[in-house]
Amino acid sequence: MDRLLKIMSEVRPDLDFEIEDKLIDDDILDSFDIIAIVSEVNFEFDIELNVNDLKPENFNSAEALYDLIIKVQNG
């Protein structure tokens, strides 16, 4: 989880990802942020998030994204 938080705050140093839980619904992250986060996550965690994973509920909070990463890692 710390690795993920580090990736996310590298992309957006102005946000506290331990608190934010409506990153998509409240229009906080833009598409550039998401592309940057997805590409870093794929690299750091050695996974390949595919289009079916790209849904608002998976990106509204760091926790939701972390759950998704674990799910993908476990196949």
């Binding site: 229009d27 598409s31 289009v51 849904k55 990106f59």
Partner: peptide, 10 residues
Amino acid sequence: PKKLFKLPGT
């Protein structure tokens, strides 16, 4: 809707 362009899954 804008969010469909951020996360184009749907």
